[in-house]
């Protein structure tokens, strides 16, 4: 029975605050498209009319980190870029999630070279790794759905104790 039908019947539902917040959060994940290279084109393709990421509530791509809760890192992260990626991640408000899109971000991919970071998990907490070079748009949508599942398991109080993190990156 859908929610609408139940509401028509009884006029109210009982649930927990946790689940209603998790439900709201997961249905409107706003991605921050950290498009760096080739994968970014497939990320745009995921939002285009054919694949239509909007069906999962994630079409609102915001290019400012302050309005986002999901960072899609799409593309090869070099050492020079890593500082930027991290600074942008630090600016996103809590709670936040990260998708490592493509082989490059997950492991360095085909670039075993001096300037490419061999996996962004060296400096970012990654929630979902997406395989492929580039992952097909379906695969990215799958990753967003996985993030949604992950969010639906969270409780509101999981994030309450974390102070607003405004740390500036230190080079070490």
């Amino acid at each position: 029975m859908g929610l609408e039908a139940k509401l028509q019947q009884d006029g109210f539902i009982t649930t927990t605050i946790d689940s209603i917040i998790a439900w709201a959060r997961k249905s409107s994940v706003w991605p921050m498209p950290m498009g760096i290279s080739c994968c970014a084109i497939e990320m745009i393709a995921a939002a285009d009319p054919k694949y239509d990421l909007a069906r999962f509530g994630s079409e609102v791509m915001r290019f400012t980190p302050r309005q986002c809760d999901l960072m899609i890192v799409a593309g090869t992260v070099t050492y020079k870029m890593a500082q930027v990626v991290r600074r942008i991640y630090d600016q996103m408000p809590e709670p936040k999630w990260v998708i490592a899109m493509g082989a490059c971000t997950s492991s360095g991919g085909m670039y075993r070279s001096y300037s490419v970071v061999q996996g962004i998990d060296q400096f970012l907490p990654v929630d979902v790794y997406t395989a492929g070079c580039p992952p097909r748009p379906e695969n990215l949508i799958n990753a967003v759905m996985t993030i949604q599942q992950k969010i639906s398991k969270t409780r509101a109080r999981d994030f309450q104790d974390q102070p607003f993190d405004n740390t500036i990156i230190t080079n070490n």
Binding site: Y79, K80, A82, Q83, R86, R87, Y114, S115, V117, Q122, F123, L124, P125, I169, T170, N171, N172
Partner: peptide, 9 residues
């Protein structure tokens, strides 16, 4: 070590 990375969270 020739190129710095941001610190781990």
């Amino acid at each position: 070590g020739s190129l710095p990375l941001p610190g781990k969270i």
